[in-house]
């Protein structure tokens, strides 16, 4: 297979297959969660569920003082990675072209210099948590294959994208093909690993908030 064929495959069938697996897997997870149902709560409701559920989804994305028990390092590196990754994914103008191609609509992009920064921050955050994981004996003990694998699968799109823009390593055609393929790998792997938290985190947060709302307490 030549580099050109590889790129054509990645932009065509590869993308169709990986998006389909990702969407199917994620919808499956959420639908399954929903239909499994919960036991009927016999207590008198003291508040609503929907509003507090949604609130919790939003609120738990922000830092609040009680969070520092995990140690500031994990906190900062974690935020850095997630923000860097998401900004790069959703606000790089060439990624918006991709979303427009799939969703039918786009949104304004951030300037290239901001994306450059977010990508670097994202990569740095990922590397930092891995260093921490390897050198901290407890964390190392608790890590299994999936932890390392999902880390790599998350790093690859960021790293190949950075190399593509800065023309490090391979020529544009090959590098673009690798970059797209690495993202497709992430899509395929996500529903079946702990990476599925990118969607299921919202379901579980909603339930948390909803339960609290039902009881009439602040979540």
């Amino acid at each position: 297979m030549t580099s050109v064929e590889l790129l054509h495959w990645a932009r065509g069938p590869g993308l169709q297959i990986s998006v389909a697996i990702f969407v199917l897997g994620m919808v499956f997870r959420v639908a399954q969660n929903y239909f499994i149902g919960r036991d009927k709560n016999l207590a008198e409701p003291r508040g609503t569920q929907f509003g507090p559920g949604m609130q919790t989804i939003v609120r738990r994305s922000f830092f609040h003082p009680g969070m520092n028990y995990r140690g500031y390092f994990t906190l900062i590196a974690g935020y850095a990675f997630h923000l860097g990754f998401l900004i790069t994914l959703f606000f790089f103008s060439q990624h918006i072209d991709l979303f427009r191609g799939i969703l039918g609509f786009g949104w304004p992009a951030l300037p290239a210099s901001v994306i450059e920064l977010s990508a670097v921050v994202g990569i740095a955050g990922l590397v930092a948590v891995m260093v921490h994981r390897i050198f901290d004996p407890v964390r190392r003990f608790l890590s299994d294959f999936q932890d390392y694998f999902t880390w790599l699968v998350t790093l690859l799109p960021l790293a190949t994208g950075y190399m593509l823009i800065h023309r490090i390593g391979l020529p544009f055609t090959e590098m673009l093909a690798l970059h797209i393929l690495s993202f497709e790998l992430l899509l395929v792997v996500a529903p079946f690993t702990k990476l599925s938290h990118m969607v299921t985190i919202f379901t579980s947060r909603w339930y948390n908030g909803a339960i609290a709302g039902y009881k009439g307490v602040q979540s």
Binding site: L15, Q16, I17
Partner: peptide, 23 residues
């Protein structure tokens, strides 16, 4: 960077299939 084939159709089918299977 945009898809070279129709991805939306596949994604739509995947939503339906995922929902049915999950349910």
């Amino acid at each position: 960077s945009a898809p070279a084939a129709d991805v939306s159709k596949w994604a739509g089918a995947a939503i339906a299939a995922g929902a049915v299977a999950g349910a």
